[in-house]
Design a binder for these strands. Structure first.
Lengths: 191, 191
DNA sequence: TTCATTTCTTCACAAATGTGAATGAGAATG
DNA sequence: CATTCTCATTCACATTTGTGAAGAAATGAA
């Protein structure tokens, strides 16, 4: 029995076959078509997903009504809206698939039962949250200290999948610049 | 027995007098003069501090050798460099007092003993970390979506203590702009 | 107080980024 | 295939922000 979910979890914590089987029963396979939502703004996020294949985007509506892209997640990434999930409060973000996406999904209740059944799984979760937290610190630092062109170059170096697989106006939004500016940056940096 | 440390903790979790006494024995009172360090870049952060009075600044050196201000913490705030603390790795940040500061400090080992003695204290810690995490998400969103003047106005509205108590070139760095730009923004926004 | 040092402000100009419009390329649809 | 629609590119120009220099103001030390 090997799938990407188990493979990923085993990177963080050794679990035996019994534990793995318990764990698998708690997850449900879900498919999203492009533009389907994992979570809509205003809803309470009651699930955590692990992406087997595909690509999703976190975004919110800014005050002037534009989509503001906050993050991406791709195959082998975990996804949830932590604030909403943890505090059972309505989410200010939406998460939608921007490629056909297959997931393993676990609900809040199921996750808590899993923690009782497989206590070591809590360590996995904690490490994953830390990873997201440190990623956010890094992102804030980049937005603070780098100019647009540098942020683009860094994204290209560190997360090329975003630039390869995401529409440019979404990438621009994620970088905090206008689509036209990203177009200009790409022209200057490649030539 | 009432001090700001206990008062703050009780906001998050009800603890009885026995627990409070155990807890107090694990913390040590420390004073920092202005420009004294709580943590220096390159060191491993082995402590968590609770600020009773005063003000500290997190910063790192950018590639061009300038101080880049990452955060502030004031009285009744907790302070540590999570990444270094959690993973016992050397810190890329420094934390220094920018006002005379009094602290309660607890070491990594002492904190873990405290978790055994007062298990409920883990809940406090978890909530504090979540708070920092959500704050960082918000900061990244602001840096992404707002222009310099809007970031300044928002800081003034939400954290006026920073503008009142921190030198302007540090505030500018925190906002991700040049000191002269902050000066210009202040001139235009007040008139 | 006086002097030295640091920080803040102001200015002129440079560089970076935003904006609206026009065009073009490609994908989707019929 | 033709048509539409969406997105990317380009351009001219506006706005925002950065930069270096000069001086003013504030701070700290003798």
């Amino acid at each position: 029995m090997t799938n990407s979910l188990i493979r990923q979890i085993l990177l963080y914590e050794k679990l035996d076959d019994v534990e793995i089987n318990i764990l698998l029963k708690r997850f449900e396979a879900v498919s999203l078509k492009t533009d389907d939502y994992f979570l809509k703004e205003g809803q309470i996020c009651r699930n955590v997903g692990f992406i087997e294949t595909g690509l999703v985007m976190y975004y919110k509506l800014s005050e002037d009504g534009h989509e503001l892209v906050c993050d991406f997640a791709k195959e082998n990434d975990w996804m949830t809206q932590y604030q909403s999930f943890i505090s059972t409060s309505s989410s200010s973000l939406s998460i939608k698939a921007i490629e056909p996406t297959t997931l393993y999904v676990i609900s809040f209740d199921s996750l808590n039962k899993l923690y009782e059944e497989v206590p070591r799984f809590e360590k996995v979760t904690r490490q994953l949250i830390e990873k997201v937290f440190f990623g956010m610190v890094k992102r804030a630092g980049d937005l603070q200290a780098l100019k647009a062109e540098e942020r683009y170059e860094k994204l290209l170096a560190e997360n090329p999948f975003i630039i390869q697989r995401v529409q440019q106006y979404y990438v621009a939004s994620y970088l905090g610049i206008a689509p036209q500016s990203l177009s200009r940056i790409r022209k200057n940096s490649s030539g």
